[in-house]
C-alpha cells in the first residue's frame, strides 16, 4: 500500500514542481512569452480551441492506431514466416534487416506522392517504422522454446499448430509485448512525420501551422495533446500486457522489486 502510494505520489510531486518552476520562469519575465508561454497560458489557449485540438487529435490518433495495428500484424506474420519457413528466412531476413538502414523518414515524400495527403501514407510510414522491433522481438520469442518442451508436446500428439498455440505463442508473448511497447511510440513518430511531409489535418499539421505563425502557445497546446495521445496508447499496451502475461517473471511483484 505504502509502496503503491509512493509510485503515484512521487511522479505527481515532480510534475507539480516542474510546472510551478515553468510558471515562475515565465511569470517573472525570465523568458519571453512568445518563446516559452506559461503553462497557465497554454491551458487557457487549449480550453479556447479545444474543439479544434480534439478534432486534429482524433485524426492523429487514428493514424497512430492504424499504423500500430498494421505493424503488429505485419511484424508477427513476418516473424512467423522467418521462424517456420526456412527458405523465407534465408532469402528475405537479411534484406528485411538491411532495409532498416534506410532512414524511413526520408521515404515520407515518396509515400505522399504515391498515396496522397490523407490517412494512407501516415499509416504506411508509421507501420514501416514500427514493425521492426515487433519482428525482431517476436522472432526471438518464437525461437526461445526448448527442444524438450517440443518433445513433451509431441508425445501428447501435438502437431505444429498445437505446439505453436500451447507453447510457442505463450513463450513469445513477453517478447511480443516488449516489441509492441517500442512500436507504439514509433507509430506516433511515424504519424507526425507523415503529417510534417504533407497533410491538411492532424496534430503534426497544427504544429507546422503554429510554427509558421510563431504561435508558440498553440504549438505547446498541440504538443500537450500529442504527449497525452502517446501516453494513453502506451498505457493501453501496458494494460493488455498486464492481462495477458500476468504469469511472467517480470510481472510478479516480489521479483520485480528486486530487479528494479
Amino acid at each position: 500500500m505504502k509502496a503503491s502510494l509512493l509510485r503515484l505520489a512521487a511522479p505527481a510531486a515532480i510534475f507539480v514542481v516542474g510546472m510551478a518552476g515553468w510558471q515562475c520562469l515565465t511569470a517573472f519575465g525570465f523568458v519571453a512569452p512568445y518563446l516559452l508561454p506559461a503553462p497557465s497560458q497554454v491551458l487557457r489557449r487549449m480550453a479556447a480551441v479545444h474543439t479544434l485540438l480534439l478534432a486534429h487529435s482524433m485524426v492523429t490518433g487514428l493514424e497512430i492506431l492504424l499504423g500500430f495495428v498494421v505493424a503488429v500484424v505485419v511484424g508477427v506474420l513476418l516473424a512467423a514466416a522467418v521462424v517456420y519457413i526456412r527458405p523465407f528466412e534465408a532469402a528475405f531476413y537479411p534484406w528485411i534487416i538491411a532495409t532498416q538502414a534506410i532512414p524511413k523518414v526520408a521515404l515520407g515524400p515518396l509515400f505522399i506522392v504515391w498515396l496522397g495527403l490523407g490517412l494512407p501514407p501516415k499509416v504506411v510510414i508509421g507501420a514501416l517504422i514500427a514493425f521492426f522491433p515487433i519482428l525482431i522481438d517476436t522472432v526471438v520469442g518464437l525461437k526461445s522454446i526448448d527442444r524438450e518442451s517440443i518433445f513433451l508436446l509431441q508425445s501428447m500428439g501435438a502437431r505444429r499448430w498445437a505446439i505453436f498455440r500451447y507453447a510457442q505463442l505463450p513463450t513469445a508473448l513477453p517478447n511480443l509485448f516488449a516489441g509492441m511497447k517500442v512500436a507504439i511510440t514509433l507509430a506516433t513518430v511515424g504519424a507526425i512525420v507523415g503529417e510534417f511531409v504533407g497533410a491538411n489535418e492532424g496534430l503534426g499539421y497544427v504544429l507546422l501551422f503554429a510554427n509558421g505563425t510563431v504561435d508558440t502557445t498553440l504549438l505547446f497546446g498541440a504538443l500537450v495533446m500529442l504527449s497525452l495521445l502517446a501516453v494513453v496508447f502506451y498505457l493501453v499496451v501496458c494494460l493488455f500486457e498486464a492481462v495477458f502475461i500476468r504469469w511472467h517473471v517480470s510481472r510478479r511483484g516480489d521479483v520485480a522489486r528486486v530487479t528494479m
Binding site: 524438450e148 518442451s149 518433445f151 513433451l152 509431441q154 508425445s155 501428447m156 500428439g157 500451447y166 507453447a167 505463450p170 502475461i245 504469469w247 511472467h248 517473471v249
Partner: peptide, 19 residues
C-alpha cells in the same frame, strides 16, 4: 513417428508458467 500412447517425465519439470 512420435509415440503418443506414452507419458514422459523429463529431468526438468517443463511446467508452463501461464498455467
Amino acid at each position: 513417428k512420435p509415440l503418443t500412447d506414452v507419458g514422459i517425465v523429463f529431468q526438468r519439470d517443463l511446467l508452463f508458467d501461464w498455467r
